[in-house]
Simulated scan of single mutants.
Amino acid sequence: MTVRQLRVVVRAEDYEQAVAFYRDALGLPEQAAFTGAGGAEVTILDAGRATLEIANAEQVRMIDDVEVGRDVSPHIRIAFEVDDVVRETTVLADTGATVIAPPTETPWRSLNARLDGPAGLQLTLFEELEPLGGDE
């Protein structure tokens, strides 16, 4: 099997708010949108390169401690790499997100902020402060 794309599907009770937040405020380009019978709507947003990060409970607790100072992670958390975490945290807070923890430098040399976003998603915004191994 060859996986060609990772797509995360989120049920949003306030669909318009979620689309406006993730498309317009976060800046994820709209790839496609469809409507169906009975008021069904979906918007597919391009989030760039996708990875699936599998972490054990100890790792999640350690990341929470570094980024937030306490355990806050739900079962699934979405992380977005951005160019300017400080600016983007402010933009997202102004457009509907709740800041859980402000941008914080991590021991692995990234600047991370934690937010609660629309549609029940907890978000990490991160900015790499130096290239990861193998990246130039």
Rank of each mutant, 00 (worst) to 15 (best):
T51S: 12
E30C: 09
G133S: 10
R7E: 15
D46S: 07
Q59W: 14
G134V: 07
E16C: 01
A79G: 15
L28V: 03
E88G: 00
T104H: 03
S110A: 15
E41K: 15
D65T: 13
E105C: 00
E30G: 02
D94I: 01
G117F: 02
V19I: 09
P102D: 13
E136L: 06
V66F: 09
D94Y: 01
T51C: 07
R109T: 11
N56A: 08
A12N: 01
R70S: 12
Q59A: 12
I100Q: 09
E30D: 00
L28A: 02
R87T: 09
E58C: 05
V3G: 03
A20Q: 11
F80M: 10
I63V: 14
P102H: 09
E53H: 04
V42I: 15
D14V: 01
R7C: 14
I78V: 15
E30W: 00
E13V: 12
P131S: 07
L121D: 07
N112L: 13
E53I: 04
T90P: 00
T106W: 11
L28Q: 02
L121E: 06
E130F: 09
A33C: 01
N56C: 11
T89R: 02
V68W: 08
L111F: 04
R7V: 15
V8N: 12
E67I: 13
L121W: 09
T106F: 07
T124Y: 14
W108I: 09
A57R: 13
T35V: 14
G36F: 06
W108Y: 10
I78L: 15
W108D: 07
Q122S: 11
L6V: 11
G36C: 05
D116E: 15
G117R: 11
V10L: 11
P131C: 08
V9N: 12
T2G: 04
A57M: 04
E67A: 15
S110C: 11
F21T: 03
L92K: 10
A32Y: 10
D135A: 09
A97K: 05
L129I: 10
V19D: 03
